[in-house]
């Protein structure tokens, strides 16, 4: 198993957390819903794996490049 950091591509605000730590996810699953400039943007699991850590909470402002979710794959 290795860790994969899922990062913010742009500056966003976390709108909703869709999954919990420890959950199994498959590639394409929506992990979080982000919001930027009145647009909702889903954060997608890039690979199959298990959610090791969710580093953000709803309403957090996240900078570009910041890790939001760590997946064990």
């Amino acid at each position: 198993m290795s860790d994969v950091n899922v990062e913010a591509g742009i500056t966003v605000v976390v709108w909703k957390i869709e999954k919990e730590t420890g959950k199994k996810v498959v590639e394409g699953d929506v992990l979080l819903i982000l919001e930027s400039m009145k647009m909702k943007i889903p954060l997608i699991a890039p690979l199959d794996g298990i959610i090791k850590e969710i580093k953000v909470e709803a309403k957090d402002a996240v900078e570009e490049g910041e890790t939001m979710v760590i997946l064990s794959v």
Partner: peptide, 13 residues
């Protein structure tokens, strides 16, 4: 708009 001209994804900064 501050956004990508092709994907229309927001581009704050």
């Amino acid at each position: 708009y501050a956004e990508d001209p092709e994907s229309f994804l927001p581009s704050p900064g």
